[in-house]
Design a protein around this nucleic acid. Structure first.
Lengths: 138, 138
DNA sequence: TCTGTTGTGTTACACTATAACGTATGCAAT
DNA sequence: ATTGCATACGTTATAGTGTAACACAACAGA
């Protein structure tokens, strides 16, 4: 196995590093403009600079986009690049995001799609709820 | 069973009807502003009028929001209100959206979340790919 | 009738994302 | 080395998505 984490990626450029670091430091997902606010002091001034860096980071798999929040998170799962389907569990109280992966779920989704003669290229799966720490019961 | 389709809903108001009809007529998902363009001739002039109607229609379950497209579709599945998880299969060629539902998938998602001690309130599942008619093989 | 709730209409604004343009940097091939 | 190309950068302007705040209208129930 020797699972390597995001290996063989080209080095990050200055803007990409700034954006990636901002996301890594944050405990919660950040919008592109929230990222911008965080990197202004480092010389980035325009939204486009952030979006361009994000595009590359998304390509490399270092960052994920949460469609239901219009926000971005640094990848926290060393295995995620091996999969086409990642499940994001988004806590509505503390905003923490967990990445879950499961081969059976992916198979299930593909089976469901196949039954409808639909061929899947990409899947977005985002769960809203409470994380372990924030659940009413504790 | 006697599956009833969206029964016991309050009657739609004028604006709600206009927005719902626009979505029903459309073969593809519509953005709020695309809906607005479609109902201007009927007296709706401002985005907020559309968003307010959409909010109610979403509450009633007559309309779904596609997070990955920032767009809306009229519900096409008589069973969907009985479920908390609907899978949307979005064709990237013809834009057609199918609603798929599957108890096993829902169970699978809940199991996956439970393993992480996450309690699910809502789920977004959107598949991108090609529908039966648009697949390369036909 | 009074009152609360829901829906409506309007203006203004905030947030999210991209188009279009030009410049700079690095690297490969001659 | 210089030419040529690809990639990244910086800036301005603009497009697309979504709400805040305020006022008025319609209607139901006490």
């Amino acid at each position: 196995m020797s699972a390597h984490i995001h290996a063989e990626q080209p080095a990050l450029t200055k803007n990409q590093s700034l954006v990636y670091d901002a996301l890594t430091r944050s405990k919660a997902p950040l919008s592109a403009y929230a990222i911008l606010d965080g990197v202004r002091e480092h010389g980035i001034r325009a939204p486009l600079q952030v979006y361009r860096a994000l595009d590359k980071l998304l390509e490399m798999g270092l960052v994920h986009r949460l469609e239901s929040l219009n926000s971005f998170v640094a990848c926290s799962n060393s295995e995620c690049e091996a999969r086409e389907t990642i499940v994001f569990a988004i806590c509505e109280k503390c905003s923490k995001v967990s990445e879950l992966a499961d081969d059976r779920l992916e198979a299930q989704l593909n089976a469901l799609a196949s039954a409808d003669h639909f061929s899947v290229h990409a899947a977005t799966v985002e769960l809203r709820g409470f994380c372990k720490q924030c659940r009413p019961t504790g």
